[in-house]
């Protein structure tokens, strides 16, 4: 039984994501729209991580920490970069990080089906819905920024 590994993976990714949203907010203080949205999404990610904690505890007894696969956690975001192109790259990294959470959610949802755990299924589906909006927002924001950052800025 490795469900707890995956739950921990998701938990860590969401915690990292919350911190990444905050870092981007701090790293780009002059962007007119970053503050409100990033803060909101950071809170959302932190809440998601909290929702998972009871399930990590629920499945831990069946999982040995020693069995955790190598390189389960890969850091995807390593700090902000300045400027228009920097913002685009930061949002790009964030997009990958959210995708990581999103696909982990999808896998855990499959696991929850196998474990007949409706409660877990409900939680990861809620997470999945919120992550989908996060992806849409990042995509929207990057699409708007890309022409100026890639073609105009010197």
């Amino acid at each position: 039984m490795h469900l707890a590994h995956y739950l921990r993976l998701l938990h860590r990714s969401q915690t990292a994501l919350a911190e990444a949203f905050r870092e981007i907010r701090r790293g780009h203080p002059h962007e007119p729209d970053m503050y409100g949205v990033c803060e909101r999404l950071a809170v959302q990610c932190r809440d998601q991580a909290r929702w998972l904690e009871p399930f990590v505890r629920r499945y831990e007894p069946w999982t040995s920490p020693a069995q955790e696969p190598e390189r389960l956690h890969q850091p995807l975001f390593a700090g902000t970069r300045p400027g228009g192109l920097g913002l685009l790259r930061d949002l790009h990294d964030l997009y990958l990080l959210v995708t990581e959470c999103d696909i982990a959610c999808a896998m855990i949802a499959q696991g929850a089906l196998g474990a007949r755990d409706d409660e877990l299924l409900d939680v990861v589906r809620r997470c999945g819905g919120e992550l989908a909006v996060q992806l849409l927002w990042l995509r929207t924001r990057m699409r708007h920024a890309a022409p100026q950052a890639l073609v105009v800025a010197s």
Partner: peptide, 19 residues
């Protein structure tokens, strides 16, 4: 038409960044 028209604060931001 690759995105919505740029909003006012973003225009000033681009000017601030020099683009």
């Amino acid at each position: 038409h690759w995105g919505p028209p740029t909003h006012a604060m973003q225009i000033f931001r681009y000017a601030e960044q020099g683009s």
